[in-house]
């Protein structure tokens, strides 16, 4: 599974074990250079390099949701001219809103289901699909509860994100158990409250850096975490229900949410959680984020929230320069 939004319940219902790959960070992206130019985002470059290095050996199918032009390129290469054969599914995520988008996404999920059933001979029934959707919704509820409780949870940033991001690979019931343990870790909390936005809290050194400098991420607006706070669907038709849930998250650039809605959401999130600063961890050349960036920064600064744009590269370690930027931001907080 590559970023960002995909119907988890569908893979589960078909008996697949969905594991998300955000990069993975720390991958040497050089081998991908023969296919994707270095000026393209590091997430698809790392993903492809990981695949070329045999990282997806035991994988039956790779899913590349259409989140942006960069993932579109990767999906297209894997579909048409794969450097290493591997079945690829490439669902399109509608950028329009309203009924037209839900109907399209439901049909897109139904098509995926048909493709998966072709491979496995026996497809799930409508009841199986609905049950899987409900299971995921229960895990989504635990996910939301965990994010809401963050200001009271005493875990370090690294530990908190390890718990919350286990949603990316654990089955729903197991994730709920992890969430419960994390939720119980309440206690005295300290640290400078900040909001983390961007795509993904990587490279790994980022969270370690925040922990080292006594920063506490109290609000998350990354595409990877906070923007996947899905609400439950309402329909009894499983594909439609999954589509409703996927479209229900907070405003997200990769879903094409209007800029004004997103800015209002992030500013409100910062205010609710008392964040004093916002860190925007954005992979280099990430179009969806970079267009919104100046408008978002201006709005946050106007609301008294200092902002710092950190350009990240998942194929590289967290740099000393980035560490200095974070520290300098903290030193300059009023």
């Amino acid at each position: 599974m590559l970023p960002v939004h995909h119907p988890r319940a569908l893979w589960r219902a078909h008996g697949y074990l969905p594991v998300e790959v955000w990069g993975p960070p720390g991958t040497d992206a050089t081998p991908a250079g023969a296919h994707l130019q270095p000026f393209l985002c590091s997430i698809p470059r790392c993903g492809l390099a990981f695949h070329l290095a045999g990282g997806l050996r035991d994988v039956d199918v790779v899913v590349v949701p259409h989140a942006c032009d960069a993932l579109q390129g990767l999906g297209s290469i894997l579909t048409d001219l794969p450097p290493r054969p591997l079945p690829a599914l490439t669902p399109y995520l509608p950028r329009a809103t309203g009924e037209v988008a839900v109907a399209f996404l439901a049909a897109e999920i139904a098509t995926l289901s048909t493709r998966l059933a072709e491979g496995s001979q026996r497809g799930p029934t409508a009841d199986d699909l609905l049950a899987a959707a409900l299971d995921e919704e229960a895990a989504d509820a635990a996910f939301r509860a965990l994010l809401d409780a963050r200001p009271r949870i005493s875990l370090s940033n690294a530990a908190f994100y390890e718990a919350v991001r286990s949603r990316e690979y654990l089955p729903p019931a197991e994730f709920r158990a992890v969430a419960e343990v994390a939720l119980a870790a309440t206690g005295p909390v300290d640290g400078i409250p900040v909001l983390l936005s961007g795509i993904v809290p990587e490279p790994a050194g980022l969270l370690a850096c925040l922990d080292r400098h006594g920063v506490r991420v109290v609000a998350d607006d990354t595409a990877c975490v906070g923007r996947r706070r899905y609400a439950p669907g309402t329909s009894t038709e499983p594909f439609r229900r999954m589509a409703e849930a996927l479209g229900s998250g907070p405003p997200d650039t990769t879903r094409g949410s209007p800029l004004s809605e997103r800015v209002a959401y992030v500013v409100a999130l910062a205010a609710q959680t008392g964040a004093r600063a916002a860190l925007l961890a954005i992979p280099g050349s990430c179009d969806p984020e970079l267009f919104a960036l100046p408008v978002l920064r201006q709005a946050l600064e106007a609301a008294g929230v200092r902002t710092l744009h950190l350009e990240t590269d998942l194929s590289m370690p967290f740099t000393a320069q980035a560490d200095t930027r974070v520290e300098a931001l903290l030193e300059s907080l009023p």
């Binding site: 259409h66 297209s76 048409d80 509608p94 399209f104 049909a107 209007p258």
Partner: peptide, 21 residues
Amino acid sequence: PMALVDTPFLYGTAPPHALTY
């Protein structure tokens, strides 16, 4: 106002639901 015409990227042939969309 911005009117959006979102056209799903065609990895293969256009499915009917993309045309309707």
